[in-house]
């Protein structure tokens, strides 16, 4: 079976398709308010790129947390579908980049989401499992944005350039790239490694470990 089949099946599911549609709609809205209507500098990319990265990472974190207890195949399909989000939103990034002439190189803008999405998905899985172990799985909808804020706060508090996707969206950060690659690799090992016993979906009690 082609590896694309589960991905195609996953992205066709109503929840994912609706999130994708909402995501593209937000990008369209950002483009509408940031695209210049007359002469002058084009600042569209500076609104669009951070928004795109923030939404992609938040979505990846959320899906990772929500599917922490899902079967491995399901998680892989979700991660693949999230990478399709990156591809589907790439024309927005390319078009606004072309017109804006930002200082960040194009290769950075084009590649960093492919690192961030699996990395944040992995963090999301970890967060989901931790929440299940602590029996606070019910509060995942709150924990996911809080976790994101905490990561950004860490960067701001300690002057780092490691986790904050908004900062990394507009300028090259090798520490960020290194951490994202490491997390994505960890995620790859965790998701692809055959396991003796697949996790069952989390019960309301949250005992998923």
């Amino acid at each position: 079976m082609s590896p694309l089949v589960p991905v195609a099946h996953r992205i066709r599911s109503p929840d994912m398709l609706q999130v994708l549609a909402l995501f593209l709609m937000v990008l369209f809205f950002i483009l509408a308010i940031r695209w210049p209507s007359g002469a002058g500098s084009n600042e569209a990319w500076f609104g669009l790129a951070p928004t795109r990265i923030a939404l992609l990472t938040l979505t990846a974190l959320g899906y990772g947390a929500a599917e922490a207890a899902a079967p491995r195949a399901r998680r892989l399909a979700t991660a693949g579908a999230l990478l399709l989000f990156v591809v589907a939103s790439a024309p927005f990034d390319a078009a606004s980049y072309a017109a804006s002439y930002p200082a960040a190189p194009l290769w950075w803008s084009a590649t960093v989401p492919f690192l961030e999405v699996p990395a944040y998905f992995t963090m999301g899985v970890g967060l989901g499992r931790l929440a299940a172990r602590l029996r606070v799985h019910t509060f995942l909808a709150l924990l996911v944005p809080l976790f994101m804020v905490a990561l950004v706060w860490l960067d701001v508090r300690f002057g780092l350039d490691v986790f904050d996707p908004l900062t990394a969206a507009v300028h090259v950060s090798w520490p960020h790239a290194a951490v994202m690659v490491a997390l994505a690799a960890v995620g790859g090992v965790v998701h692809l490694r055959p396991r003796g016993r697949e996790l069952e979906p989390a019960s309301p009690g949250g005992d998923a470990a």
Partner: peptide, 23 residues
């Protein structure tokens, strides 16, 4: 001058719709 806003938004909307329908 940047490309006209209506043109860019029309193309963006058409693309977004097409990609969602394709998937």
């Amino acid at each position: 001058r940047s490309a006209p806003q209506p043109l860019v938004l029309s193309l963006a909307a058409a693309y977004a719709l097409l990609v969602v329908l394709t998937l």
